[in-house]
Amino acid sequence: MRKLILIVLMIVFTSVAHAEERLNVVTTLPWIGSLAKELGKDRVSVTTLVKPSQDPHMLEAKPSMILAARKADIIMYNGLDLEIGYLPLIFESSKNPSVMPGRPGNFDCSRFVRVIEKPATVDRSMGDVHPLGNPHYHFSPENVLKVAEGMAAALGDLDQANADFYRANFEAFAVKLREKQKQWSSQPLSGKRFIAYHRLFEYLATDFGFRIIGYVESKPGIPPSAAHIERLMEDMKKSRPDGILTTSLYGKKEAESLSTKTGVRVIVLPNDVGAGKGTADWFAFMDATLKSLL
């Protein structure tokens, strides 16, 4: 028994002593990780839980995620209930009080976002509607800028010795974003009309002035029925949209079959940072997204 207690105590002490000097940042989505790296540079070590090849709606709380949360100084997440299926479980199972909701180590990016498409009434007969509004705001430069500002402040709060460093990195990020924004806005997207598979691109449409006039999914998260596709094809013949938007994550096959039937081209956009070539960070991801739309 005494031996067992000794072993347990040793594990406790080693785990306490293990605490690194760099701030341990855990993020759910790749784009949040990219932002954290941009702002924290070498003063933070970033672990991203969701891979760009994974659908962030449909994940399980893997023990490796819980372990990462256990060691985290701060967890940054998309919010708006996107990660509702696994993140609450990760928080609780992490047994790490500093990342629990309400603590400085719990960073909900959506708190800084101007949310669109918040439904007035919602029930599940409408499909997998996000009751707090559209959560896919990482396509929106305006909103990402706000998130980055909040993130720099949150990092500074936790690591006050480096607060100025994070703030300076944010300023540099903001300057770069403003420059890029000029370049992105100069693209002739205004007035274009697209069909989309899932409600992923609404922020992009709002920020860059194009319209999404129909969806391949009959209801969010529910695969299209034959009747719905039939109707959509009729509409598309009349409206002649500029493309069918989808990602490589899901809906690509459905979009392609719709394309062969209607002659409207498929545009595969990256769903997140790291999905596909040339999307190594958030700026590259946005570059690739806007380039594909042309």
């Binding site: 708006l80 209930d81 928080f91 609780e92 909701p101 309400g102 800084f112 909040g150």
Partner: peptide
């Protein structure tokens, strides 16, 4: 930076 008053909750 301003944050909306209601946070996500657990």
């Amino acid at each position: 930076p301003s944050a909306s008053p209601q946070s996500g909750g657990l």
